[in-house]
Amino acid sequence: MTTTSSEAAPVSGRVKWFDPSKGFGFVIADDGGPDILLHANVLRNFGQSSVADGARIEIAVQKTERGVQATQVLKIEPPEPESGVPLADFENIDPDVMANAPLEPARVKWFDKAKGFGFANVFGKPEDVFIHIEVLRRSGLADLQPGEALAIRVVDGKRGRMAMEVHAWETALSR
């Protein structure tokens, strides 16, 4: 890869789409211009294996012979929720309990994007934690890989322990 510009410039925008199985996606810059390639390795260097479509993102970019590419992810914010309505599983949970739930270290046991859910194990606790695809999306993620390190906020729901917020481990350290 030969670069036509040696300095990476910061750009803010939205994730157009990202497909972890393809290993890339594209960002639309707020200031317009061509789509910006976001490679999975650049996202992994930020500590995430995926990012939700529509998420706000701040990246360093570089122009190359093949177009504009992200070289570093600086910040990711989850997409705006489609409505202010909480998920049905959280309707009857005290908002103070949800607001004060600590971030807990966990690893993904399995996650099936097609089914829309999966499970994680919190370190030192025997029971699985249910993770719904909508919670993942509202947290700015699109998919999870087995063994991936997470920081999650967990509440006791109707069907057992449930994640209400999910973060890649590396990004949670700054929260």
Rank of each mutant, 00 (worst) to 15 (best):
K125H: 13
P126K: 13
A40I: 12
D156R: 08
R44P: 04
A151H: 11
D89A: 10
D89K: 13
T2Y: 09
E170R: 10
L136F: 05
R161D: 02
H39G: 05
F119K: 03
S49G: 12
T171V: 06
R66A: 14
L74V: 03
F26D: 02
S83L: 03
F119N: 04
P102F: 01
D30P: 06
P20F: 00
R161N: 06
S49E: 13
H167A: 06
D30G: 04
I93S: 04
F119R: 04
L43H: 08
P20G: 03
V135G: 00
D128L: 08
P79K: 09
V154N: 01
V61K: 09
K75V: 08
L37D: 06
Q72K: 15
S83F: 04
S5F: 12
E77A: 11
D53E: 15
M1D: 09
L144D: 08
V135R: 00
R66S: 14
G84D: 14
A40Q: 15
L136I: 07
W110Q: 13
W17H: 09
V27Q: 03
A99Q: 12
A142E: 15
N41D: 09
G25P: 14
E65H: 11
V97C: 02
F130L: 08
A60P: 03
V73C: 06
G160I: 13
P102W: 02
D30E: 10
V97W: 05
G25W: 06
E58N: 14
E148H: 07
K75Y: 09
A29N: 03
E134Y: 08
P105W: 02
G147M: 11
E7T: 10
T171C: 01
V61L: 00
I76L: 04
P10M: 01
G160K: 12
F46Q: 02
A101I: 05
E58D: 14
A8S: 09
A114L: 12
F26I: 05
V42W: 01
D112T: 03
A52P: 02
D53R: 12
D31A: 10
I36A: 00
V85Y: 05
K113R: 13
V97M: 06
L103M: 14
E104K: 15
F117H: 15
L173E: 09
K125Y: 07
P105S: 05
V42I: 11
N92W: 02
E58R: 13
F26M: 05
E165C: 08
I57E: 12
I93L: 05
V135T: 10
D35N: 11
G116K: 11
D53I: 07
V61A: 06
R153P: 00
A29W: 01
P86C: 04
W110I: 02
V154A: 06
V129F: 07
D19L: 11
S174Y: 15
G25S: 14
P81K: 07
A88I: 15
F123A: 14
A101D: 03
F119M: 03
E148Y: 07
G25F: 07
H132A: 11
D30S: 15
V166W: 00
F123I: 08
V166F: 01
E82A: 11
T4D: 13
L136E: 00
L136A: 00
H39K: 09
K16P: 01
V122Q: 03
S174Q: 14
I76E: 03
G84T: 02
Q48L: 14
L144A: 07
P79L: 07
A172E: 01
Q72R: 11
F26A: 01
